[in-house]
Design a protein around this nucleic acid. Structure first.
Lengths: 174, 174
DNA sequence: CCTATCATGTAATCCGTTACATGATTAT
DNA sequence: ATAATCATGTAACGGATTACATGATAGG
């Protein structure tokens, strides 16, 4: 039988994309991540080659390789995969995530806000604008399947605004 | 000579605590993390045994082991360590952190907000209260060295409030 | 005295990152 | 043609998590 593996967030990202987009190559997954989840959960493209392999080993997806030419691999979610995905989305989480903000870590350890703040502030400004842009596009076009992504964007916007306000404030000597 | 290693956020947490608290055992570091950085950047205690060892290998800290009894290890930051820490806090960051919120990931992939939201909401409520409590304590007692931690708390509070509002909103059918 | 809990550490596993490498397309 | 970029992968290394394990200390 197929060996058992632990499913990580990366696993669910792959499964989720495969369910939403149908059979895909790692490169297609990469594109998918870039325009969707990648906005708040990024991963290097190598993961999108490695992870489907792992998932295939355990039967959550099937792997299909071209016999000819570039020998591209295409992955498709299986029923087992769909079950795992649904079980995961149905379960509430145990704990809140850490902020894990390196800039904040520096401030914690005494970094000068005037140094750390301004670039940070600029990036959040850009991020907010970008999120709002995507949100506009998704809410006008984009059907009911855009519900999750839209909500996600909304949290992204609100959190980014909070961060923006913070870095703005501490950038000017308190 | 000592082998070179890459310094990770974990490294700087250890260095930062060692500078702030003076020579410490891994357990003391664990205590330190728990009441400070741990609130937004947690790590398992095993890291606080492994990481100082790594740092010692490269000369950022010294390791001192009791000859008798429990043979506890005590670590102290070196000048090289202090230099590295200062260099790090002086440099602005390159990129914003990802949110990496698993609950949000679930919503993105279509999870029912009514399932995911409420527990999330409760946790943020508690978190905000906890942060505010710590903030009160730190701002009345706690000298000028509490500046960084206080700022950190303030971002924590603002972000948590934003998240709280979000989960509250989506918990009730939109 | 016994059993929780605190304190202190090591071992194994593995995911994730970084780097390397090459085959196709497209633009100039 | 040829450079540049897109597409497609593999290899290696190491940090991080999880689990295991035992020595002290305090409470009942």
């Amino acid at each position: 039988m197929s060996s058992a593996i632990a499913l990580t967030p990366t696993s669910y990202i792959v499964l989720g994309l495969l369910e939403a987009a149908g059979p895909s190559t790692p490169y297609a997954l990469k594109q998918g991540v870039a325009v969707s989840v990648g906005n708040f959960w990024s991963l290097p493209h190598s993961q999108l080659y490695a992870e489907p392999t792992r998932l295939a080993r355990a039967g959550y997806v099937t792997e299909d390789r071209e016999k000819t030419g570039r020998r591209r691999k295409t992955y498709a979610i299986t029923d087992k995969g769909r079950d795992a995905l649904r079980a995961w989305t149905s379960e509430a989480d145990a704990a809140l995530p850490d902020l894990r903000d390196i800039a904040l870590l520096k401030v914690f350890f005494g970094a000068d806000p005037a140094t750390i703040g301004p670039p940070q502030l600029e990036r959040y400004r850009a991020k907010v604008a970008e999120y709002e842009q995507i949100h506009r596009v998704l809410s006008t076009h984009g059907g009911p399947s855009a519900k999750g992504p839209l909500l996600t964007l909304e949290l992204g916007i609100e959190v980014s605004r909070a961060c923006l306000a913070f870095w703005e404030r501490i950038s000017q000597g308190d």
